[in-house]
């Protein structure tokens, strides 16, 4: 298995440990990651409103780089996933495609529409498979009460995986259960973490994050597991801000899917750089 790997800006900076964990996990599973090291930012939410045509063209450039390798793109961030699927959908329009390929011609690239974009949990569940993950588990997460947190952009506007309409997903639960953990249901699991307004309205973003942490805590979870680097940063690095805004003490460790799988597959805390978390997962007694 080979993928063109796109860690995303958050994976390259605030969540560098998740990028690292993803590489270690992939190596452990025999998945080869070829990093798209010349790819640009996906534009997140700002790109599409501030300069949509540049955002479209630069994402097409990234996808064309993956196509040059003959590979699909692997993402560890929900918004990167959305931004690329948005690009692919826009480029199904022949006029847009011609315009973008004219621009990419300036740097010797053409977008063909072949590369697919795959979020990490999709690769783990659909390509590796739950049975194989279970078989490769070295340290089953028995007794770990983990609250799945999907975030938004793998569910809305269109579900990235799973057969349902994105309203009552269970693939994250399926993944955690395959790794031996106990998935704890909670009402905020498909809600927003608040990431996209943290920079401009931190109190509001932190209040939104607090709702998620509150929901997981009330359900009796020991930690939260998410497929997204942005959700991870919001719930971990901004947990203090969320505690301040809600006047509640959470101290809930947040784990990215790459880390949950990495732990179960026997990687050490040092391998996974778990000491980089703001809320230490050490209390979980896993590694």
């Amino acid at each position: 298995m080979r993928f063109a790997y796109y860690p995303g800006c958050v994976g390259k900076s605030s969540a560098a440990e998740v990028d690292h964990a993803t590489r270690r996990l992939a190596a452990r599973l025999g998945i080869e990651l070829v990093e798209l090291d010349q790819a640009s930012c996906c534009g997140a939410t700002q790109g599409w409103v501030t300069d949509p045509s540049l955002t479209l063209a630069l994402n097409a450039r990234t996808l064309a780089q993956a196509e040059g390798l003959g590979l699909d793109v692997l993402t560890i961030c929900n918004t990167c996933y959305l931004s690329f699927t948005r690009t692919i959908s826009r480029l199904s329009h022949p006029g847009e495609l011609a315009r973008v390929n004219h621009a990419l011609g300036a740097i010797g690239l053409q977008y063909q529409g072949r590369a697919r974009v795959r979020p990490l949990p999709a690769v783990l569940l659909e390509d590796v498979g739950a049975a194989d993950l279970r078989r490769q588990t070295r340290r089953p997460l028995e007794g770990l009460r983990i609250a799945p947190f999907y975030g938004c952009h793998l569910l809305r506007p269109a579900p990235a995986l799973g057969a349902d309409d994105g309203r009552s997903p269970h693939w994250l639960e399926d993944l955690f259960v395959a790794l031996g953990a106990e998935a704890v249901d909670h009402p905020a699991k498909t809600q927003c973490c608040g990431f996209h307004i943290l920079m401009t309205n931190e109190p509001l973003g932190a209040r939104i994050a607090a709702r998620v942490l509150q929901s997981a805590r009330a359900a009796g979870a020991a930690c939260v597991g998410t497929p997204c680097t942005q959700c991870y940063v919001t719930l971990d690095a901004f947990q203090k801000a969320a505690e301040r805004e809600s006047r509640t003490r959470f101290r809930l460790p947040i784990l990215h899917v790459a880390e949950v799988a990495g732990i179960a597959l026997g990687l050490s805390g040092r391998d996974l750089r778990l000491s980089s978390h703001m809320v230490s997962p050490r209390s979980l007694g896993l590694v």
């Binding site: 939410t45 938004c152 608040g194 307004i197």
Partner: peptide, 8 residues
């Protein structure tokens, strides 16, 4: 600008 782009 307080919309957090969650598509809810």
């Amino acid at each position: 600008y307080d919309c957090c782009s969650c598509y809810a």
